[in-house]
Design a protein around this nucleic acid. Sequence first.
DNA 1: AGTATATAGTTCATTTGTGTATATTCAATA
DNA 2: TATTGAATATACACAAATGAACTATATACT
Lengths: 163, 163
Amino acid sequence: MSAFAPTEARLDVTRAKYPDFPRGPAVLVRLIKHLFKEIHDEANALLRPYGLNHPEYNILMMLYGSPDNSMHPSALADAAGEKSANITRLTTQLCEKGYVARSGSDADRRKVTLTLTPEGLALIDGFLPGIVTLLHKQTRNLTAGEQDQLEVLLKKMLAGFGE
Amino acid sequence: MSAFAPTEARLDVTRAKYPDFPRGPAVLVRLIKHLFKEIHDEANALLRPYGLNHPEYNILMMLYGSPDNSMHPSALADAAGEKSANITRLTTQLCEKGYVARSGSDADRRKVTLTLTPEGLALIDGFLPGIVTLLHKQTRNLTAGEQDQLEVLLKKMLAGFGE
DNA sequence: AGTATATAGTTCATTTGTGTATATTCAATA
DNA sequence: TATTGAATATACACAAATGAACTATATACT
């Protein structure tokens, strides 16, 4: 029996009380919330031994995903889905730990450039094997074809936001 | 152009540096994170005029999804995907606002029962129309068939956790 | 019965996240 | 070139969430 069954039962009760409540959309939203929490918690557990949490990991990986291992804070905020005030705090921590370096920009002096240090790159090399294993584990119930399908549908849904 | 395109570009760079990094699973995880943040932020904005945030809303709706409008804290933690310590804090707030009532249980004196008050039910009636509209808006890009498909796939993925 | 083990809920210290205001720089244009 | 408005990043006060320790009941076992 799926762990999600109680959620569906609750939704049935809700619809009995308030028939307009849309079952499909509500299920999707609750599924996404549950998945996010699970993903978040598992990643946190894996990263704790490295002294990192999930948001810090995300920032390191966004920088790693840039050809020169560097980004500006505002781009990082978009990429990591964090508020810019939080980027300041998180990157300050990563700087203090020595994984990221801050530097000014000559072209636009408002901007700051954040770059992975050699220590940061070494840390990433250290935790990536575990992350790869975790990612496979988290999607093991889906075939490659199902993953593609899911990706298409999630993108389509996401495209409906912020318009 | 999709707002998600930069994420995919970063993933390509990552895979150039670390070929084992699995593209599909990583995309799925990032999509889910982005969707959750959008859903969370929009719900927060809608609920603010009612003096509620998204987690508080979730708790009220979990109670509403129970036939007698009541649940125990531990069940609520599961249902709402919150840690039990957080349930204590959130429900205390909701009690102070008069939307939820706490009471002991005779059968098992460790347990506490949380029940929606008439004020809580009235509040729900007040914000539900807006929520219904929001839920439709958040899934407007998906046909009914696509929503069903997405639901199946997300459930399948979720079933892979915690085993 | 008596003891160990597990469960329910809370408390508290700490970490993490947000909203708002502010300083600085850039870009547009009158 | 002076002025206005937008963008970038940060500071800070406050809000929310977490992990770990703790109290109290309940359950299982000998």
